[in-house]
Amino acid sequence: MTARDDLHAAVAAGVVGSEETFRALLGAIVEVARAIFGAKASSIVLLDEETDELVFEAVVGEGEDSLLGMRYPAGKGISGWVLATRTPLVVEDVHQDPRFAADVARDTGYVPKGLMAAPLLHGERALGVLSVLDRPRASLFSLQEMELLGLFANQAAIAVDLLLKARRAEKLLAGADGDLRVVAELASAVDALEDERREAGMRLLHELSRMLGR
């Protein structure tokens, strides 16, 4: 094996099954964001650069059963503006205006009274948008809440970056005639073993490696 193949195998060991882990992390982030703000719902949409669409990757609260995987054009609406300008935006009293509600419904799947949206920025890239819907209107919106929203968006952006890296690596593996995938699955399976079984598995792999001439 070349050094590049070694690298692929090493990456693969960490990649197999990691999509689920990173998705769970995104789910946890929207869950905490909703709880901290006392909001009714929270979601993360990611940009699909190939189709110029935004895709729901994590949803909690209203719409969580129906929105995952749904897509809509990235150029328009509230999240489109937030993404393109890389700037957070807070809008209140949305429901009082049914025409505005149509914009928001397209972006979020339901009509809230208010929404906060922040871009997911990683380095130079805008990856998607974090939205928090219907915070309680007990008080006027404050700058402290804006800062908190930004902190959640930063955390979410890191998780999204990991998810996207895992997807790229998965794609790479899938394109390697399946050979590398077998190696990756093997590495992942051995990694999941414990104690004696893990030791036995490692011995077997070393023996295999020796037999194959390394």
Binding site: T85, T87, D93
Partner: peptide, 19 residues
């Protein structure tokens, strides 16, 4: 913060942000 603004389609909203 909490600025009343015109929006498209003749609407008016309350919004917040440096923008």
């Amino acid at each position: 913060v909490n600025v009343e603004v015109p929006w498209s389609d003749g609407r008016t909203l309350t919004v917040s942000g440096n923008s």
